[in-house]
């Protein structure tokens, strides 16, 4: 079991090493905080620090924070996690127990397993218990399995455009929720599509380059592993529209594990699932749900806390596991 955990950590190290992140600093962080992981962005340079220290700082200095949850897959009942409702509940309990209250929650898709009304009902029931009352959604491919996402859009897409994209401003930060799981083409990966890209260009036009931008979508907006479709075919186009901004944070789900990349002023981050883990790219025959020993499950599920500090142009992204 220890080996498994070590493998998991090693994999994360490998991913991060490609980005020039200090290995020793990361190890120290892992050792100190277990699987909790903190990256503070400052001028495009990631600085790792221990979990509790950062949480303290965030509490004192942060202008606001929000929490990202992802891939709750309500309705999934296979061996990788026979009770996904319970683990989502644990995630919500964890959010409610945070010392600094998040202003809102972002769910980056795959709310449900099969887009069933009963699954959405269960999700709503659990989310109702969250202390943060405002929740923003983007759909995952599992939420649009039937009727082109009609059921999803009726419930979670009020005020959105097209297949569910939208933007909003919060305390000086501009948030854009994008949909890259609709009308997917044979042989391709995620796709935003022409109409949405035009809307995005228009949405960002005229905004000051000093406005911090947060893009969130289900499938990663950077290519992580094409063989498994872990990327978005036309994400380059979308990212070209945010190049002029001083601080861009891209939050995704879909791959059920933490991955990070810094490219200039853009930091990419994927969140853990609240339901089940998936293997690291290329380490398994497929991206299917990964079964870990029951007592390990909560260590590979989690939530992402994002802190914004005005004037620093940096968003501190803090991942913490459920157990």
């Amino acid at each position: 079991m220890q080996d498994k955990k070590q493998d998991f950590i090693d994999q994360k190290l490998q991913d991060l090493n490609n980005d020039g992140v200090d290995r020793r600093g990361f190890l120290k962080c892992m050792a100190w905080a277990g699987t909790g992981l903190v990256w503070t962005m400052s001028g495009g340079i990631p600085v790792s620090q221990a979990f509790a220290k950062s949480a303290d700082h965030a509490g004192k200095r942060g202008d606001f924070s929000f929490v990202q949850i992802s891939d709750s897959h309500i309705g999934f009942n296979k061996p990788a996690n026979p009770d996904v409702t319970a683990t989502l509940q644990t995630a919500i309990d964890k959010i409610n127990a945070m010392p600094h209250k998040p202003d809102f929650i972002i769910h980056t898709g795959d709310l449900s397993q099969l887009s069933k009304p009963s699954e959405f009902d269960t999700l709503d029931q659990v989310l109702k218990g969250a202390s943060a009352k405002q929740i923003f959604f983007v759909p995952g491919e599992h939420d649009m399995l039937t009727d082109n996402g009609e059921e999803y859009l009726q419930r979670y897409g009020k005020g959105t455009k097209g297949t569910g994209w939208s933007s909003f401003d919060h305390k000086g930060v501009h948030f854009v929720g994008l949909v890259n799981v609709a009308n997917l083409k044979a042989g391709g990966m995620g796709s935003l599509g022409h109409e949405q890209l035009e809307w995005l260009e228009d949405d960002l036009k005229g905004r000051s380059a000093s406005t911090p931008i947060v893009l969130f979508a289900h499938i990663p907006l950077w290519t992580i592993y094409p063989d498994w479709g872990w990327g978005t075919d036309d994400s380059e186009q979308a990212l070209s529209y945010v190049k002029r901004f001083g601080s861009v944070t891209v939050l995704n789900g879909h791959i059920h594990q933490i991955m990070q990349k810094i490219e200039g002023k853009v930091s990419f981050h994927t969140a853990m699932s609240t339901a089940f883990p998936q293997p690291a790219p290329g380490t398994a025959p497929s991206a299917g749900p990964m079964k870990v020993p029951a007592e390990q499950l909560q260590k590979v599920l989690g939530i992402t806390d994002v802190n914004y500090v005005r004037g620093q142009h940096s968003l501190a992204v803090v991942d913490s596991t459920l157990g």
């Binding site: 491919e141 997917l184 044979a186 042989g187 391709g188 990966m189």
Partner: peptide, 12 residues
């Protein structure tokens, strides 16, 4: 007849 999985379009 070419076909694919509309959920995971890499599957053809």
């Amino acid at each position: 007849y070419a076909y694919y999985c509309t959920i995971h379009p890499k599957m053809t």
